[in-house]
Design a binder for these strands. Structure first.
Lengths: 254, 254
DNA sequence: GCATCGAACATATCTAGACATCTACTGGCG
DNA sequence: CGCCAGTAGATGTCTAGATATGTTCGATGC
């Protein structure tokens, strides 16, 4: 093996680096087809598994995407949704009955696909935050957001089932202004929010439900809504396609 | 090949799923060593490359980590740093001369490793935000944050070089309260911040500088500081190890 | 008792070839 | 002209090896 001439770098990494440079140099634009496995085999004089490994590096970085039977393609930039964490939730928005997604910019609003409302036991951490006692159930609302038919976010809301039973919150259509407006009518209007943000690679189930290609992480946003008295009334766990979203928070220095 | 009995699932995915279940069931705790490649070969009757592919799935999901010559291990949960976006930057904190990292919780404060200050051309997008004219340079401060000796964040600040020339901002040690206190003394104290958050897989360089294992995405935070007059005075691009950080934003509904 | 060397073992890389499965294109047929 | 079957070509999966390189740990020697 002629490893020494490559400066101790495995062949597949060198090939991957060259392809990456070629992409960066504009030789292959977004959506363009990269050389096939057999092309790399003859060009670099390697076995097919080695060429595949090189493609594997690019796919793991989210730079390329293989389509079975067609080839390996440079991944196209995805549409970016700006999600403004703070203005989105201002009382002026949901208090007036407008959808909180109205401010999401540039007319590209995800479409909500409602997946169901159930009463079930909440995860321990969620139950603790909501102050649910032993055996108490949560009202769980599951939704999926689609942009141009492509899923971009999964959302799961947890509320105290005893609090919202019989109200539109427990119905598929929660009415104008969403569940925050309903909570306000019940005397539990959210006054303060906390959002916690993490990121990791998706599990196989999340990748399937979001239609993610290899090398695309997910962003986890966990939002907790508090009343003015400091009672947590809703926990909303969101799983976002990281290629589709930019989160934005704007705030004063005081 | 006995594909049909597995319900159309490739062998390597089935093996990966079984290992994952075993991890979830607690058979292999954090840091424990998983069965070796030859173990899987004999247990499932597959070739070496197939067993390796199964490990590859777990590594891509960030669940396992291979150490050459030693084995494949369940990845340990990393220490989590809470980064509070809003309180961190309140004037009470930096205005009083305290480090903005003081509020980062639980005594686990990253140590700043200073990488240098230079005057150089800023990227186009940054130059546009800062209002830098043609040929104007930016004062660029690069830092790396370490927790227990392990790098967890890379940060690059851009400021108008003409504004901060000759001040401590252009020095390695920017003095008590950091560069925001210095900017305030110059009459450009930040009054408003915007943080934009994205996530993606790291490039080879980022992975190396943060010591990331395969399957760990990075979180990108781009913070822009504005004066009360709306002038952007600083752009801070941060690259975070997603396994080390939880970002937190807390805000009122009005 | 401690340091060092070496063998056993583990993963990392690579080859050469086989069969499976999906895509896209090309003809031919209605 | 349009639809559809056939086919070439592409990636996906899998095997069975070989060689390279790093880790671990016991045995040896000082």
């Amino acid at each position: 093996m002629a490893k020494d001439v490559a400066g101790r770098q495995p062949k597949y990494q060198r090939i991957a680096a060259e392809l990456k440079d070629a992409i960066a140099a504009g030789e292959y634009g977004p959506g363009a087809r990269l050389p096939g496995e057999s092309d790399l085999m003859s060009r670099y004089g390697v076995a097919r598994m080695t060429a595949r490994q090189a493609f594997g590096v690019l796919q793991a970085q989210g730079l390329a995407e293989a389509r079975k039977g067609a080839g390996v393609f440079v991944r196209e930039y995805q549409v970016v949704i700006r999600r403004r964490g703070i203005q989105r939730l201002a009382v002026e928005v949901w208090g007036a009955g407008g959808s909180i997604w109205d401010v999401d910019g540039k007319g590209r609003e995800p479409v909500v696909e409602f997946l169901g409302v159930t009463d079930e036991a909440a995860p321990d951490a969620v139950a603790a935050v909501l102050g649910l006692g032993e055996g108490a159930t949560a009202c769980v609302r599951r939704r999926r957001f689609l942009l141009d038919g492509k899923p971009v976010m999964l959302a799961t809301s947890y509320l105290d089932a005893a609090l919202v039973a019989g109200t539109p919150v427990a119905e598929p259509d929660s009415g104008p202004g969403g569940i925050y407006a309903r909570l306000a009518e019940l005397g539990y209007g959210p006054a303060r929010f906390r959002e916690e943000i993490r990121s990791r690679m998706p599990g196989p189930d999340e990748a399937a439900r979001l239609g993610l290609t290899a090398g695309t992480p997910v962003v986890l946003v966990c939002r907790t809504a508090y009343t003015a008295e400091g009672k947590a009334v809703e926990v909303n766990e969101m799983v976002l396609d990281s290629a589709a979203y930019v989160l934005e928070y704007e705030f004063d220095a005081r």
